[in-house]
Computed example of a mutant assay.
Amino acid sequence: MKELSIESIRLSLMNYQRVVILREKDSDRYLPIWIGPAEADAIAVRLQDVSVARPLTHDLLRNLIEQLGARVAYIVVSDLSNDTFYARIVLEVNGETMEVDSRPSDAIALAVRTEASIFVEDSVLDRAGVVLEEDNQPAGVGGSRPERGRPVDPAELERLGAFKDFIEGLDLDDFDQPRG
């Protein structure tokens, strides 16, 4: 497993969908995950320290977990199947660990509220991670330069076609700019 941090939340100008961009710690590899507008707002509200009058759903979930004496140890993006990411929330309860199935967007929204670490399974990052070349263009997309020299299977390219289209439509010019 690799640890990730939230690089940004972006809006695709091609289809107006939101995407959370996770960045591998100590690396220039990124993991883009499409998320819904409500989850994007829930993550952004917490990242920007915006106060809301009443608890949002993810605040309620955090409060419930804490009131029951548990804590979020970490979350992990655990799988990618048919262009759908899967995640698990790992809880510590009475000295034991418990895993709860989750959408990545909900797990990330909870992680930012509990300051829990975000991890991804190596196999997911190897399949969907994007490395930026020096000119800020994705490497390994469309068969140009696959990561780690692994040959790109045409069937895999077909399955990941939606990711390729999305990545090619991102504005990556400000990726190296500091976040405020």
Rank of each mutant, 00 (worst) to 15 (best):
A162V: 12
Y74D: 02
L80H: 11
D174S: 15
I167N: 00
G149F: 03
S81V: 12
D135C: 10
W34M: 14
V112S: 05
L80I: 15
G129V: 00
V112I: 14
N136A: 11
R145D: 14
L31W: 07
S102W: 13
L47Y: 03
I43Q: 04
D153C: 13
E24V: 05
G140A: 07
I118P: 00
V90F: 03
P138G: 02
F85W: 12
A73L: 06
R113S: 09
E7T: 08
D174L: 12
I118R: 00
I65K: 06
M1E: 01
I65E: 05
D126V: 09
F175R: 04
G95Q: 11
L110K: 00
E99S: 15
S105L: 02
S105F: 03
L47M: 15
E158L: 14
I9T: 06
A155R: 08
F175D: 02
V45L: 14
G69M: 09
P178G: 04
S51F: 05
P154E: 11
A38N: 13
L125V: 12
P37N: 09
L56H: 14
R46Q: 13
K2D: 13
D28Y: 10
L110P: 01
K164F: 04
V50P: 00
R113Y: 09
L56F: 10
E121R: 14
N136C: 10
D173V: 06
V90Y: 03
P151I: 14
V93P: 14
G69W: 11
S117Y: 11
P178A: 07
P138S: 01
L132E: 08
A116N: 01
L47V: 05
L56R: 13
D174Q: 13
H58Q: 12
P138A: 09
A87H: 06
P151A: 07
I43V: 14
Y30G: 00
P104H: 08
G161P: 01
I167H: 00
A38F: 14
E66C: 05
E168G: 07
G143I: 08
E7Q: 15
V77D: 01
I9R: 03
K2I: 13
Q48E: 15
D79I: 05
A40F: 02
Y74Q: 10
A42R: 02
A107K: 00
E147G: 07
E121G: 03
L91H: 07
V131Y: 00
Y74W: 06
V19I: 15
G140T: 06
D49T: 10
A38Y: 08
V50R: 12
V130L: 12
P138I: 02
T57H: 09
L4T: 07
P37M: 10
D176T: 13
A87S: 13
L64K: 05
V50I: 15
F119T: 03
I108L: 10
A107W: 01
S117H: 10
E39A: 00
